[in-house]
């Protein structure tokens, strides 16, 4: 690490000649879409034996408030030796153009690398990406894949600031910024599917609606059991009750199914049955129609 011990000669600057000045706001937080994360992991799996880490480009959108939403990522070729580091710029540009064709809204926001060590090369690559993202600042995401003994899997996001008396591209300090996983509620089921696929090796797919309902109900039932155990132990005086939890429980369990009770149930039931009947009717009609088409050969 070229970042020497903090001495009087070292100071932080936000804009110097070596770095592009930022008219936009400095990134304050980063959200990562699961797709970007999974692509990074896949890239890491497919690295060659000689590669210590892999790097790539992050694509996403910026908001005015300094939040960066990383939507996707692609791998970029690079080589690191003791003497030098090289990034295949041509490849990077080709890939960016290809991605841009499909998704014009996503722009380059920064780069990722696996592993948690930030070194001189990281600063150099960061400098390169700062030019790509100009006039905005580039972000760097370090994905710890958790394969190294003693390190936990995790994601960290950084922005860089130049450091040193005279600005040089290889001198930079990486300032961590908050990073969160973000996805839309509609994508949630996809993640659930992956999570269930990873816990059980052979998950039958597609699972029916009822299977999933059963799973959710079981999980709710488990949670109720947990709550019940907690409440019992509070009542028995073993644990001191937490008023905040009590209020949450009150709010959650206080809601009732009154609406369904008052005749709403029957009306809704009739609607649902009607819809079900209709659907079956349409299906059988379609089937009959398809069979009839096979028999109605014109007598010739």
């Amino acid at each position: 690490m070229p970042l020497g011990p903090p001495s009087s000669a070292v100071f932080l600057q936000n804009s110097t000649a070596g770095f592009v000045s930022t008219p936009g706001r400095t990134p304050t937080s980063v959200t990562v879409h699961p797709v970007a994360l999974f692509s990074i992991l896949d890239h890491y799996l497919r690295r060659t034996d000689a590669q210590e880490r892999v790097i790539g480009t992050l694509l996403g959108t910026r908001s005015d408030t300094g939040e960066i939403d990383v939507r996707s990522s692609f791998a970029v070729l690079h080589s690191e030796t003791a003497e030098q580091v090289a990034v295949d710029m041509e490849y990077h540009h080709t890939m960016y153009e290809l991605h841009h064709k499909v998704n014009p809204k996503e722009v380059i926001v920064g780069w990722y690398s696996t592993g948690s060590n930030l070194n001189t090369y990281s600063a150099l690559i960061q400098n390169f990406y700062s030019q790509e993202t100009a006039p905005h600042q580039a972000i760097h995401i370090a994905v710890d894949t958790g394969v190294v003994e003693g390190e936990n899997a995790g994601v960290r996001a950084y922005v860089s600031s130049p450091v040193g008396v005279s600005p040089k591209p290889e001198n930079a300090v990486f300032v961590p910024i908050p990073c969160e996983l973000l996805f839309k509620e509609t994508e949630r089921s996809g993640l659930d599917l992956l999570a269930s696929a990873s816990s059980t090796l052979s998950v039958a797919h597609p699972s029916t609606d009822l299977d999933i309902l059963e799973r959710a109900l079981r999980s709710v039932s488990d949670m109720l059991d947990r709550v019940l155990t907690y409440v019992r132990s509070v009542l028995a005086g073993e644990v001191k009750g937490d008023p905040a939890i009590g209020r949450y429980l009150m709010d959650t369990l206080g809601s009732s199914a009154e609406d369904l009770e008052k005749g709403g149930f029957n009306a809704s039931l009739q609607d649902t049955l009607m819809v079900s009947y209709l659907a079956n009717l349409v299906r059988s009609q379609a089937e009959v129609s398809a069979r009839l088409a096979l028999t109605s050969a014109p007598p010739s």
Binding site: L37, F38, L41, D42, Y44, L45, T145, G146, V147, N152, A153, G154, L191, L193, L194, A195, A197, S198, S199, S202, V203, A204, H205, P206
Partner: peptide, 16 residues
């Protein structure tokens, strides 16, 4: 028939 598979790395990550 279709099966969904996650590689070991992704499984551990999802687990985390």
């Amino acid at each position: 028939p279709l099966r969904v598979r996650t590689n070991a790395l992704m499984s551990s990550f999802l687990e985390t």
